[in-house]
Computed example of a mutant assay.
Amino acid sequence: MSSLRHLIPRQLVIADNEYLTLLILSALLVLAGIVDYLSVNFSIRSKRSSKNTILLTGLPSAGKTVMHYQLSSGKTVETVTSMMENEADVVLTDGKAATHVVDVPGHERLRFKFSEFMPIAHAVVFVVDSSTVSRQTRFLAEYLYDILSDRFAQSERIPILIACNKSDLLTSFKKERIQTLLEGEINKLRQTRSAALDTQDSEGNENTFLGFEGKDFSFQDLENDVEFLECSAENKDIEGIKDWMASVSL
């Protein structure tokens, strides 16, 4: 304790009672930590108080976090699978207010967190790895189905951009092929999910039949505007993504 005494303001030092002095110091440190925590969380809640938010979603390794850093700082960074959301205010158009962009974790146990942000989202970018899409079509379709059938996506007709990332790779599929694969897989999913139309899932979202009954699924049949765009976040080729985000921003 004597070694820490010089760090304590003289007014707080209680003579002949080092333990009580240490207790006061500890209480002050805890109080400072609480104030800092509340300040940070108040700032985050303020950003989440309006619908000026765009979500970046998708499976792990699709390139969401790389894209997020590109949008927020213009830098390319090495990333690992995110275990929590990344948030940043991004100026998409000079002279206009920044847009709150949230990179939602793609891990299977965490991707449900997108539903927490849907009440304040006005657009969603669903990032797809164009080079592995043929091996992940089922998982992509399931996640995309959850987003498209979300009650806020439905009621607000939130626009969706399917960002076909890594389009520069030789093994990548073109956006038209990716659209065909996803439509075919969602068409199959409707058969297994239609039985649960009157139930609610663990997030409280109503299961919705996408498209028209008796007709193969097509993104064109949705009330949401769904677009496909090729890009390469690793090569900083995301101007099309940024332009789309700017076009749908408030």
Results as ranks from 00 to 15, higher is better:
His122Gln: 10
Leu148Tyr: 04
Ile158Arg: 06
Asn165Gly: 02
Tyr143Leu: 11
Leu222Tyr: 02
Lys166Glu: 00
Lys174Gly: 15
Cys164Arg: 06
Val128Trp: 00
Leu181Asn: 03
Gln220Leu: 13
Ser155Leu: 08
Val133Thr: 10
Pro119Leu: 09
Glu203Ser: 11
Ala195Tyr: 10
Ile186Asn: 01
Leu197Asp: 03
Val125Ala: 11
Leu148Asn: 03
Glu203Asn: 14
Lys166Asp: 03
Ser167Val: 05
Ala195Lys: 14
Glu176Pro: 00
Phe126Tyr: 10
Met118Ser: 10
Phe126Ser: 01
Gly214Trp: 02
Gln191Cys: 09
Asn165Arg: 05
Leu210Pro: 01
Leu181His: 05
Tyr145Ala: 08
Ser149Ala: 15
Cys164Asp: 03
Glu185Val: 03
Pro119Asn: 10
Asn187His: 11
Asp146Leu: 08
Leu182Asp: 01
Ser194Pro: 00
Pro119Ile: 09
Ala123Glu: 02
Asn187Thr: 06
Gln136Val: 09
Arg138Cys: 12
Phe217Thr: 00
Val128Gly: 06
Thr192Pro: 02
Gln191Gly: 12
Gln136Phe: 12
Ser218Asn: 09
Arg193Ala: 08
Asn205Lys: 07
Pro159Ile: 05
Asp146Ser: 14
Thr192Ser: 13
Ala153Ile: 02
Ala141Leu: 07
Leu210Trp: 01
Tyr143His: 13
Gln200His: 12
Glu206His: 15
Thr208His: 13
Phe152Met: 11
Phe219Val: 07
Thr171Asp: 12
Ala123Leu: 03
Arg135Gly: 07
Phe209Gly: 08
Glu183Lys: 01
Ile178Glu: 04
Asn165Asp: 01
Pro159Thr: 02
Phe217Val: 04
Pro119Phe: 09
Gln179Arg: 13
Thr132Gly: 06
Ser194Arg: 14
Val128Thr: 10
Tyr145Ile: 00
Leu189Cys: 03
Leu181Phe: 05
Ala153Val: 11
Leu170Gln: 14
Phe217Ser: 03
Phe139Asp: 14
Gly214Asp: 01
Asn207Ala: 15
Tyr143Gln: 12
Asp150Cys: 11
Lys166Val: 06
Ala163Leu: 04
Phe117Trp: 09
Ile147Thr: 10
Glu142Arg: 14
Ala141Ser: 14
Ala196Trp: 04
Glu142Ile: 06
Val124Met: 08
Gly184Asn: 13
Lys175Cys: 11
Asp198Asn: 14
Asn205Ser: 12
Val128Gln: 07
Asn165Tyr: 02
Leu148Met: 04
Gly214Met: 04
Ser155Met: 10
Glu203Cys: 11
Asp168Lys: 05
Arg177Asp: 14
Pro159Asn: 07
Ile147Asp: 05
Ser167Gly: 11
Ser131Asn: 13
Gly211Pro: 02
Gln200Ala: 13
Asn207Glu: 12
Asp129Gly: 06
Val128Lys: 09
Ala121Asn: 08
Asn187Glu: 07
Val124His: 08
Phe126Cys: 04
Lys166Gln: 09
Ile158Ala: 00
Phe117Ala: 13
Ser172Pro: 05
Leu182Arg: 07
Phe152Ile: 13
Arg135Tyr: 09
Val125Leu: 06
Phe217Glu: 00
Asn207His: 15
Gly204Arg: 05
Thr137Leu: 07
Asp129Ser: 03
Leu161Thr: 04
